[in-house]
Write a protein that binds this DNA or RNA. Sequence first.
DNA 1: ATGGTAGCGTGGCTA
Length: 255
Amino acid sequence: MKIASWNVNSLNVRLPQLQQWLRDFSPDVVGLQETKLEDHRFPDTALAEMGYRSVFAGQKTYNGVAILSREPLTDVQMGVPGLEDEQKRVIAATVGDTRIVNLYVVNGQDVGTEKYAYKLRWLDAVHGWLADEMQRHPNLVVLGDFNIAPDERDVFDPKRWGDDHILTSVAERDALRRMQALGLHDGFRLHHQDAGLYSWWDYRMGGLSRNLGLRIDLTLVSDALRARAVAAGIDREPRTWERPSDHTPVWVDLQ
DNA sequence: ATGGTAGCGTGGCTA
């Protein structure tokens, strides 16, 4: 079962690229972020014609998440229970014996800003909820745009992207480590150790051609699923297409 | 790095 995550940066713009990639890669489950679509505009019919069911929680202009699956999606949860948040950043659903949690983590703008404080509060709330989810669903996959680069291998310039920088600050990385301490393993790092393998490149300054990127899109698998995660990767192809998202799909394969 | 590019929406915010 190939499970993927892709920040599409507007599904309205990116539907053709998503459809092409679904044909090329044939994932079983996909978590999407930054759909930027209200629910009544979600292209569920077009996706159903390709064999994908969809559940979604969207809004105009910003944020918006969805899960696509070839098999039925049940027990759909939108948002973090108990967290007041108008921003549509979380959707979870069960596929077969596996619980999928799709996160669009707060970006945080810059260290020390109000958005950064919101990011840390938000991550704390998600941590508490995931602890419960782990108890309910030992077969747990937590994927999405984490807006956190786990370590120095995941950034193009570790001197710049360090302890005091957004996406790599000590508090952000601590929050990710705390989440992983629940028993969630970075699917990509189970199979690849190299530095310089990224999931996002800035649109500006020739970011892709110079490989000025970050690995901030993750697929975390629970202890119970670890042995079943037989492969993982980053599909760089869609980032090279016409009118791309600034993120490219990441995936893990569960046997 | 206070620029650069993209999306939304038509000025300025977000990333």
